[in-house]
Design a binder for these strands. Structure first.
Length: 556
DNA sequence: AGCCAATGACACC
DNA sequence: TGGTGTCCCTTGGC
């Protein structure tokens, strides 16, 4: 224990505590005082609450310093007021009643009673439509749903983890991209700037390139004329063009040629897409400017154009049918539609207003006539036709995907295989109690109705999964959750239940380091146990994942 | 088990 | 308008 130094010059301190709480020894009190010495007042006491006040540091009081009150009563960690407590109670999170609903952001109720909340009572229950906030309709919806016969969903949902690389990256995963022709290759970018290439068909075949970027890889796109080459946009301000076979990369664009000159000049690249017709990489920076790179010459093309005035542009998407038409979104709370043939500052065709930052905006994958946006106001917005009135969205779908500075921003993405262009996938921030486990599912939403088609989860995945990508041809979902990657397949197609496939989970990180570069079985089971036991909130039955016999091979 | 750091949006002045 | 303080369900490491 650290020695407790007497604080003679410290002002008088009052400690309040609940009268029914346990008394601690004076030594402990002094420790607590030590920890909270900077706190002026923690918690507020009211007259009708029984509190016990302890006085410390009377020495200081004599010197005339103002008394400081420290309350040891239990207060809400959110609003700092007594009488209630926010936080996890087991696997269920109790909201602070003093704050607006964490889900829909409206005051007067909490997420537990929010009409937009996905019901936990019946497993997969459709999320109500926007208009279902009318109490009557909501009640009808809730009462009718469970009694309706279950209809076989028309969508094929990859709902079972087929294989995984645990702690594959050394920092959290920021983006994913499937190979355009090789069905089993998944690219992943992380916060550290590393680029992973994983053959999830062979599972053990994985490479991580660590020298391409120095920080966050925000977006990756394959060269449309050479699927060996991939472009990546990074917060280090560069576009890299990497040969996946060799890992050799070039930088056709570098917005920080003079290195770090402070935050006011450091440019970051977020949104990126490729206009395959013109052979142009479109990329936008954190100061709102659009830059272009010619694929043939691998050089800059034209000047930077201001497209979002208030800072960062986070997303760019070229229309699949008419690539000259492209969509951008950014920190200025707008998604904007542009025509590349007549582009200059302020020349956007349409401006789609949002109330918060727009994390992503995508044209529908086949016809390119719909738009899906994800905004930090916890709403997905759908425009059913860009030819109609685009002044307001056709639908707003309340969905939990809050901004958190420690998470990769959530982006709802279309299923590229859905001919009706209605299915979208997006991770969920808020957790639910699934048999005693607090899990964050990945949601499949019918954007034409707002209904939740499916929520997929696994008791072993206790971290939030903000990064999700649906395979362009196969019924496969790739998920980036923290540092791990998961491949989901539909239950009927998943072979994981079979004994031989116990080796489909590859553990990286510590376990790998301990083993050095040697291949073979992981002998140190405790590390694997470490991963399994990380799901401390999880009390439900683990899936048939068996980590103890997994084998890794690293071709680095 | 408990603390800490990393670090983006935004409200407020 | 720019500086600053605050922040609700994070995650991993020590």
């Amino acid at each position: 224990m650290a020695p407790v130094t007497p604080r003679t010059a410290f002002p008088k301190v009052l400690i309040e505590r609940d009268s029914d709480s346990e008394q601690s020894s004076s030594e402990e009190e002094e420790e607590k005082l030590d920890e909270e010495e900077e706190e002026e007042e923690v918690g507020v006491s009211t007259a009708n609450e029984k509190t016990e006040k302890l006085e410390l540091g009377s020495d200081a009081n004599r010197k005339g310093k103002a008394p400081i009150t420290i309350s040891l009563k239990k207060v809400c960690k959110v609003c700092k007021k007594p009488g209630h407590e926010a936080g996890f109670k087991g696997a269920a999170y109790i909201d602070c009643p003093m704050k607006p609903c964490f889900l829909c952001k409206m005051p007067g109720h909490t997420t537990l009673t929010c009409p937009h909340r996905v019901s936990t009572e019946h497993g997969v229950v459709p999320a109500p439509r926007r208009k279902a906030c009318k109490p009557l309709e909501y009640v009808f919806e809730r009462q009718l749903r469970p009694s309706l016969p279950s209809i076989k969903p028309k969508y094929v949902i990859p709902d079972q983890v087929n294989c995984a690389v645990i702690r594959y990256h050394s920092r959290r995963i920021t983006c994913l991209e499937f190979h355009p022709t090789k069905n089993n290759i998944l690219l992943s970018g992380d916060k550290k700037g590393q680029l992973g290439v994983w053959d999830f068909g062979k599972v053990y075949e994985k490479v991580v390139y660590g020298n391409i970027h120095s920080c966050l890889v925000n977006n990756m796109r394959f060269n449309p004329t050479n699927d060996c080459m991939v472009y990546s946009a990074s917060s280090d301000g560069t576009i890299s063009c990497t040969d996946l076979e060799t890992g050799i990369s070039s930088s056709p664009l570098n917005l920080n040629p003079d290195g770090w000159q402070g935050p006011n000049t450091w440019k970051m690249l977020n949104g990126m897409d490729i206009n395959s017709e013109k052979g142009l990489v479109l990329v936008a920076d954190s100061f709102g400017f659009l830059h272009m790179v010619d694929i043939r010459s691998n050089n800059r093309s034209g000047d930077a154009i201001l497209i979002h005035k208030k800072g960062k542009v986070v997303g760019i998407h070229c229309n699949p049918i008419q690539p000259d038409i492209f969509l951008t979104c950014g920190n200025d709370h707008f998604a904007r539609i542009w025509d590349l043939r007549q582009i200059e500052a302020g020349s956007s065709l349409y401006d789609l207003k949002h109330t918060r930052v727009v994390n992503s905006a995508y044209f529908s994958p086949i016809s390119g006539t719909k738009i899906l946006t994800t905004s930090q106001d916890n709403r997905l917005r759908v425009w059913d036709s860009i030819f109609g009135n685009v002044d307001s969205p056709s639908r707003e779908i309340v969905h939990s995907h809050d901004f958190n500075r420690h998470l990769t921003p959530f982006k709802a993405e279309w299923d590229p295989k859905d001919p009706s262009e209605s299915l979208a996938v997006v991770g969920r921030y808020i957790s639910e109690n699934y048999n005693g486990a607090a899990l964050h599912p990945i949601d499949f939403i019918d954007t034409s109705t707002g209904q939740l088609v499916a929520e997929v989860m696994d008791p072993n995945i206790t971290t939030i999964s903000p990064v999700n990508k649906l395979h362009p041809r196969d019924d496969i979902l790739a998920t980036g959750s923290s540092r791990s990657l998961f491949i989901w397949k539909p239950k009927e197609k998943s072979e994981l239940v079979e004994e031989k496939d116990e080796q489909k989970i590859v553990v990286c990180g510590k376990a790998e380091k301990k083993r050095g570069k040697k291949n073979g079985n992981i002998s140190d089971e405790s590390d694997d146990e470490g991963f399994m036991s990380k799901s401390k909130k999880s009390k439900s039955k683990k899936t048939e994942w068996k980590l103890s016999r997994c084998t890794t091979k690293d071709n680095r």
